[in-house]
Design a protein around this nucleic acid. Structure first.
Lengths: 391, 391
DNA sequence: GAACTTTTGATTGACGCTCATGCAAAAGTG
DNA sequence: CACTTTTGCATGAGCGTCAATCAAAAGTTC
């Protein structure tokens, strides 16, 4: 009787050991998993020929033949990631480590509706694949971030305020029709949170990410996983009440909403009123960078206001990392300084003693990186790897 | 070659299918799992003899011999659960469905320190076991809730404000020494949240539970799992700022804390000041039940204040259930009415359209029930069941 | 360069788990 | 009582895992 051909479940289980990217020798794997050397060897062979593993450097010899090591091979497949905003999009092809291989910024108008926008994304995606030297058969999946609430399970936008024509549109079905690949969708703040978390803070359990731009939103990571909420609406911060400024009217109809007080749009309005013309977050950032005193003051105060709300989030959610990103965070350290000021003042010592309040480390790649991780986490999870072994 | 004796992993996997308590026939299990009839039969035998399954009613005949059904047997083991408060404790022995078999309320002072308190809990626990007709060998584990922050992984209280002598005490080691059973510990609000969730809202993904008594705290359930936070301090609501009343000083040194405005202690103080003497939450409840107008007004206003903070929690966390419990919630519908008023006013429609704001369904059993579920979930999870099969 | 050490790949038989099958007894229905 | 369906028991085939062995490969040490 010859030895068995393959055990998909067992092989996938071994692969999970190697997901972290650290190279290991066969002997180490045998010891770690408790499997026999022959079993490990056979499974390694399967994984090597599927491409999911690759040979790594030889380890140091201890007097005899040095052991070869094998490691996760991020180049086995690629992911197409799209971070779609209201007026432009960033596309990228990443490897399985979430590292961007090629990327591209595109001007597009989300208001053109899903067919036009998504077809363009798919067309440019194909071009990027080619540019990266890969093709559609290498696609592990497609990850898309959209600027509005998304029901993640179905991939359909849910009552998005700024995406005419997108409500209920079956994004995964459309993209699958174009590119033939599994497609996952989430809102842009969530994928930024995921990208920042997985790229820089994965050893922490809980994180809060806040994006301050034209609007204000946040993403929550609980036990390393995005907390999406029951409507996919978790992280909404824009219409939380700020503990002062209760007279400011918000477009939502309420008063004192954070977005009406501390968003890029709100600051621009305040500046204009103060005689310093500004219409957008970008204007505010430019002014702040050029040393405009009122701009700096307003940005810092916005940081404090946001910090007031984040103090509540910190008390409730008790994260160990609070990351601040979005266009307004590009106006130097003033925003985050205001956030720190308010959070440390308003939170109990227990909640802040191990809390790090940091600017976004990922820069503007956070979105596509997170979209990629969303796909990678799904497709490389336990129970999904088997399908990658046959090919 | 005879058929194999047992496959612990596979048998445990079959058991997970039956965890929901629904009786099933062997044929159904074979179809659901894809396993052969003979394999299912053998595993069922193993589970029956371990006691984890029991025979259930016969299903209806379709013309021939009616199939027997098997179901999860909650009586296979028992759990000792303790919900320890500042001045008294509730102990219970539950079955594996979390149902209370026997229970007991005890007066005790947490300030006596861990040895005295825990020894008494263990002694009474043994008595309760006997009363339930079981003994220590039937113990699946012990679950304990404590009135302060707990590092759940180690089971050690972490800087508890009202538990002198408990800081860093190794509760699981002590209890294991007394009763020889696995012991899990968490704070009392978390176990109440878990108890309420598992007993009444398990089909929902996300829940927020708030306990309003002498203090104010909350427990968060994310994807059916307690979100404990990085210091085990998640859910702290007492020192979140209320968007008005910013002049009220709190014992924590800050101003405008929710606890200084809306807790049972705060209401009692306000009533006393208004000429209606009251010193505790219980006094407030009694007054409110007797129709004291100022008491009703203050309770309702406390509900609004708490609702203001919960509105933020709802926006951020986007639960589908918000459960309100704690001593003050016993003062009729006034507290929850205030909560509803503020939450619905201050939250976006997307977050509230599927939100239910409900009083605690579990009553004062929520704590022990949650402590039991904490143990059950841990011990009956994938990978833990195997150890129960050998015996 | 030779002897030694350690890893690797290939081979083998033993063993245990799962499956499909068959059969007789059990326990109902009509 | 004939019929139907479930159940328990037995059997051999197939497959995966393991332990053991051996020879080749690839370094280190003297």
């Amino acid at each position: 009787m010859t030895r068995g051909e393959l055990s998909p479940a067992g092989t996938a289980a071994l692969f999970q050991f190697l997901r972290d990217g650290r190279p290991r020798t066969r002997a180490e794997l045998s010891a770690e998993t408790g499997l026999a050397r022959s079993t490990v060897a056979e499974r390694i062979d399967t994984l090597l020929s599927s491409g999911l593993l690759k040979f790594s450097d030889k380890a140091n010899s201890t007097g005899g033949r040095p052991p070869t090591t094998v490691a996760f091979n991020p180049a086995a497949r690629v992911v197409l990631a799209a971070d779609i905003g209201a007026t432009h999009a960033k596309l990228a092809v990443t490897d399985l480590a979430g590292d961007v291989l090629v990327e591209e910024d595109k001007v597009l108008d989300i208001a053109n509706g899903p067919e036009i926008v998504l077809r363009e994304v798919c067309d440019r995606g194909r071009a990027l694949l080619t540019q990266a030297g890969r093709d559609e058969r290498d696609l592990l999946g497609v990850g898309i971030g959209l600027p509005g609430p998304v029901e993640h399970l179905s991939g359909k936008p849910a009552n998005p305020p700024i995406m005419p024509g997108w409500d209920g549109f079956d994004v995964p079905a459309f993209v699958r029709g174009e590119l033939g690949a599994v497609t996952l969708v989430d809102n842009d703040v969530n994928i930024m949170a995921l990208g920042e978390y997985r790229a820089h803070w994965a050893e922490h359990e809980h994180m809060v990410f806040v994006k301050v731009a034209t609007g204000i939103g946040s993403g929550l990571i609980s036990y390393g996983r995005l907390h999406r909420g029951s409507q996919g609406a978790a992280g909404d911060m824009g219409h939380v009440r700020v503990p002062h400024d209760t007279d400011v009217r918000c477009r939502c109809g309420n008063v004192g909403c954070l977005e009406a007080v501390a968003s890029g749009a709100a600051i621009a309005a305040k500046l204009t009123e103060a005689g310093v013309p500004a219409t957008s977050s970008a204007d505010v950032v430019t002014l702040a960078r050029n040393g405009s005193v009122p701009a700096l003051q307003y940005v810092r105060q916005a940081g404090r206001d946001i910090g007031e709300v984040l103090a509540t989030a910190v008390s409730l959610f008790n994260p160990s990392v609070l990351a601040v990103g979005g266009a307004l965070s590009l106006a130097g350290e003033h925003l985050i300084a205001g956030v720190r000021e308010a959070v440390y003042q308003r939170s109990l010592p227990l909640a802040t003693q191990n809390l790090r309040i940091v600017p976004l480390h990922s820069g503007d790649e956070a979105g596509v990186s997170g979209a990629a991780f969303m796909v990678i986490d799904h497709a490389l999870a336990a129970g999904q790897v088997e399908s990658l072994l046959t090919q």
